[in-house]
């Protein structure tokens, strides 16, 4: 297997799907010659032309809305929103239109639309280019929400998203674009709604999303030196959510910590807590559940402040130790 970056894996998934299905096309700001703000679509315009790798005006509502309309009449658009913060500009089209059309019309219309967008902090881009907004979209019935953490997953999940007949909000992470991992040459998909135990352990379950999967794994490695055995679960998709894998793991370890980059209040971690306390795992809990999450603040610019605003490896290590003392 070849080692490629997460960004390359996103590009490969799109290239292969554009080759496979003529109804698939890309639309977004500066995705053509420029290659997108993060270079993800670089070179694709040469291979597929400006019709299928379509540069748009800076009009997020119309970009997503046009994607919804094209999807309703048989295309399978992938729209890129340059930063996930800009999803707010298209929120009516995502939340009130794409999400609701299938249900509201009694199942008569389909919206096979993928909204790809990079989220997360760590690039010094400050408050309006660094958020983690997945909980907003996970809250809306009718959407699927994906948060891949590895090159293998991002490629397989993006293919699943493109082939899905429903609107999918696909959160990539800016800091992961350069992360390398093994990805097979063969056509494969990664299913929605199947979490993966990225590391098996017995003392505590750590549920982590996107880049936090890597930080949790690094923390688990450090804690292993102190004979603490951490199980790390990556849900891959928040909607649908594989609660069964989480519940089983918590029954095994008796402890649960959720790590998310998004600010704590109203975040997806709270949903995971609720799922677990409502399940049979509740009786197996040996300690209160802990959320390790971003502070309830906008992401600040200055480097030290930015890093302190979201969970780092040492925060997870410390929190696990505290949890085990309880």
């Amino acid at each position: 297997m070849e080692e490629i970056t997460y960004g390359q894996a996103v590009r490969d998934a799109m290239r292969e799907e554009l080759q496979r299905d003529e109804n698939v096309f890309l639309m977004g700001e500066d995705i053509g010659v420029y290659g997108g703000a993060f270079g993800i679509t670089f070179g694709m315009i040469d291979e597929f032309g400006p019709d299928r790798v379509r540069d748009t005006p800076i009009s997020e509502a119309a970009i997503v809305g046009a994607g919804v309309g094209a999807a309703m009449v048989g295309m399978r658009p992938i729209v890129e929103i340059m930063f996930s913060d800009f999803l707010t500009l298209a929120s009516d089209q995502i939340m009130n239109q794409a999400a609701k059309i299938h249900y509201m019309l009694g199942g008569k219309a389909k919206v096979p639309l993928v909204v790809r967008t990079p989220g997360g902090s760590g690039t010094g881009a400050a408050a309006q280019h660094s958020q983690s907004l997945e909980a907003l979209f996970a809250h809306i019935p009718g959407l699927k929400v994906v948060m891949p953490s590895s090159p293998y997953d991002v490629k397989g999940l993006l293919k699943t998203a493109i082939r899905d007949d429903n609107p999918v909000v696909f959160f990539e992470h800016k800091l992961l674009y350069s992360k390398k991992g093994e990805v097979p040459d063969t056509d494969y998909t990664v299913p929605f709604g199947e979490a993966e135990i990225k590391r098996s352990g017995s003392d505590i379950t750590v549920f982590a999303t996107s880049i936090m999967v890597h930080r949790a794994l690094e923390a688990a490695e450090q804690l292993a030196n102190e004979n603490i055995s951490v199980e790390v679960i990556d849900p891959k998709t928040l909607v649908p959510l594989d609660t069964e894998t989480i519940v089983k793991s918590v029954i095994k370890t008796g402890r649960l910590m959720i790590v998310q980059e998004a600010c704590k209040r109203g975040g997806f971690a709270s949903e995971v807590v609720a799922e677990v306390v409502e399940s049979e795992a509740f009786g197996y809990l040996d300690a209160p559940i802990t959320r390790v999450a971003g502070k309830n603040i906008p992401i600040p610019y200055s480097k030290k402040l930015e890093a302190a605003a979201v969970p780092q490896v040492e925060d997870i290590v410390k929190a696990v130790k505290e949890e085990l003392l309880q």
Binding site: A62, V64, A66, V73, M75, Q93
Partner: peptide, 14 residues
């Protein structure tokens, strides 16, 4: 309005 516009884009592309 953007939905109709996207449907028109699809007609043109196809």
């Amino acid at each position: 309005i953007p939905i109709a516009t996207g449907a028109a884009l699809a007609q043109k592309m196809q």
